[in-house]
Write a protein that binds this DNA or RNA. Sequence first.
DNA 1: TCTGGGGTCCTAGGACCC
DNA 2: TCTGGGGTCCTAGGACCC
Length: 445
Amino acid sequence: MLALIDANNMYVSCERVFAPRLVGRPVVVLSSNDGACIARSNEAKELGVKMAQPWFQVRHLERTAGLIAVSANFELYSDMSARMMAVAGRYAPRQQVYSIDECFLDFEGVRGELVAIGRQIRAAVLGEVGLPTSIGFGATKTLAKLANHVGKTADRKPGSYPTTLAQVCNFANLDARELADVFAATDVGVIWGIGRKISEKLRAADVRSVLDFVRADAATIRGQFSVVLEKTLMELRGTSCLEMSDIDDVPIAKQQILVSRSFGKAITDPAAIIEAVSEFASRAAEKLRHQQSTAGAVGVFFMTSPFRPNDRPHSVNVTTPLVRPTADSRLLVQAAVNAAEVEFRHGFNYAKAGVILSDIRPASHHQGELDLFANDERAKTHAKDRSALMEVVDVLNCRFGRDSVRIGSSTLASHSAEVRSWATRQERRSPRYTTRWVEMPVVKA
DNA sequence: TCTGGGGTCCTAGGACCC
DNA sequence: TCTGGGGTCCTAGGACCC
């Protein structure tokens, strides 16, 4: 039996732990640039604020309905996430952290009543970390996800499901009839793996509820959609198709590393694009070294805004293969900047840019005898110097703070983050209470 | 005025091989 | 006029997730 545990409105709940004035009020957390709502409290959902809705569209609710908006504070959220995962992990032999706010637990071999255990987990995470959670139990990952959704919804919208399913929902405790009722009352679009496009297509074929979907013909689903959706169907019928990947302690290395931002305002100046791309490449290189990998290709993109119909659209997306995979910031930045210089066009209002590292492999992996340069002693020494230098840079930045040492070209046009024309706005960010000494909350006697 | 920033997996189709 | 058949590998793009 598997469980999915996730934090309710994670980002909002993290903010509330340290700012009790937010409790019971409609609250949203804003994306970078304070552009869109990426988390909503239940009260904000009730005001009609949609996921990813632009802030300017709901801003009037600040005055009319007491809506409170805060800028995203990812440093705080990821630390709170780690604490939550540590607590949840105590209760089952295997845990897979799936995202910042949810993990799967595998209860195989565990004795005891699962709903009762689920309630203990909720109480522990709430008591020790301060985050409210929901828990779903099912025979497969997709069922556990669905049970979690039912548990959360039963709690939030009385009458939607039997109250016994609220907060902690175990499908195994339902008989066939009760399960069919739950499935019939649940929209097909909430199933894990069914997004907007597929649910539209399913509805057009008169498959509207989870029950409709579960009763659909598997071969037809595969033919008209994909093997992926067929797996989803089998999972809902109780046949496991998605394995637990339970590499508990060692995070799986990313196959692609992306750093991108929307600009605070439109960019027309090549120097600004180059500065941004240089900065993104630097940041990506840090992530790359952190997971002890090298990249064999550097991608750069920048584009105009699709939301400004009066702007001429333009979009650049180029990938530069590297002769030899590297994790050296200077080489990665150089490749990214070169591509940006070549592809930049005057006369466009660029709104967003990014750098993607791909063809990622372990840093320990050497090309071996086929790489002629590798046999060149000077080249070997050079490579060693390089990685030693990067190590020093990383250590210094870890000790003295981000950007204590950085690549020269990322400061071409200006000297501080505050004056960089492309820098994102974050006017409402809370203190990083748990990860910065100077921002630690102070208790007054 | 103002519209997120990460990721994953699968598939179709082209390049290329014999 | 008629122009193979079977395979692999790679990439771009589309779907999804949070």
